[in-house]
Simulated assay, not measured.
Amino acid sequence: MAETGQSAVFDDVVERLRAMTFRADLSVREIPAPTGLSPYAFALAADVRPDPDTGESPYGTGRMVVLHDPDEPEAWAGPWRIVSFAQAPLEPEIGSDPLLADVAWSWLIDALRARDAEHHDAAGTATKTLSRGFGSLAAEGDGSQIELRASWSPSGDLAPHVDAWAELVCMLAGLPPGSEGMEVISIRRTMRD
């Protein structure tokens, strides 16, 4: 069992994260955190411009879990670890771009750097999928998706890390910084700029 003082440290961080605000076209909410990964965990979900009726986003979605273990697991090299997920549908020709995975990873690292979100021991995977419907799903045509799963050990204030994750979710959906209220742009155009 973790010490009570560590619970107070975690509770303080969580309260600051709960008070954060995000761009208007990103809906962020707290979700139940997974258990068994660390003594303390806090989780958020984000959807880009979700449908008001269904709550689902046709553009992109993400999840983030902030983990705290005062025993500082060796793999974390510190008491905190962030685990994140972001995904977005793409045009099929974009999904086949050989640089897509590299670009998705670079957007995360760039977002962390832009916010001075100090971190170490970053790891992750970028997965791109292509699909084609057959039979009764043939009318759906071809599809593609990018998915980025990443984790890193943060240093200092955790709010910039959450901001960077929120930017990543929007970037994958085709909404770069400063694009609030604009139409979702093609990821192809963003990648070639």
Rank of each mutant, 00 (worst) to 15 (best):
I185T: 14
R49Q: 14
V65K: 00
L90T: 13
A101E: 08
S136I: 05
A111M: 03
T61M: 15
R132V: 15
K128V: 13
E140P: 00
S84R: 00
D121F: 04
G124Y: 01
S155R: 15
A166I: 01
D97A: 04
P89D: 15
G124T: 01
P92N: 08
G78E: 08
D121G: 07
G141K: 11
W152R: 05
A104F: 12
T54A: 07
G62V: 06
R188E: 12
D142E: 09
H119K: 09
E118F: 03
G156A: 02
Q145F: 00
A104W: 14
A173P: 11
A88I: 14
W107K: 06
P73M: 08
A150D: 02
E56K: 04
E147G: 00
S153E: 14
F85Q: 12
S106M: 03
L175V: 06
D163K: 05
S96K: 06
R115W: 14
R49M: 09
D97Q: 10
I82R: 01
I187T: 13
T61Y: 09
E93I: 01
S131T: 13
E74K: 14
L108Q: 02
G55S: 02
G141L: 15
P89G: 02
H119F: 08
E56A: 05
A86C: 02
V66L: 10
S96Q: 08
T54F: 05
A114S: 07
A75H: 05
S179E: 12
R189A: 10
D142A: 13
H119Q: 05
L130A: 07
P79Q: 09
S151D: 15
A111L: 03
V83M: 11
A117G: 10
I109A: 13
E180C: 02
T61G: 15
G181F: 06
V169C: 07
L112T: 13
G124M: 00
P89K: 11
G143D: 03
L100C: 11
E183A: 11
G135L: 10
E167K: 01
I82A: 03
D116T: 06
M64H: 00
I185Y: 02
D97P: 00
W165G: 10
H68E: 04
L90M: 12
A159V: 14
P160A: 15
P92W: 04
G78R: 04
D53H: 12
D97K: 04
I146E: 02
A150W: 01
H68V: 08
L90S: 14
Q145K: 05
A138F: 08
A159D: 15
L99I: 07
D69S: 14
A75E: 06
T129R: 13
D71G: 10
A75I: 13
I146L: 09
G95P: 08
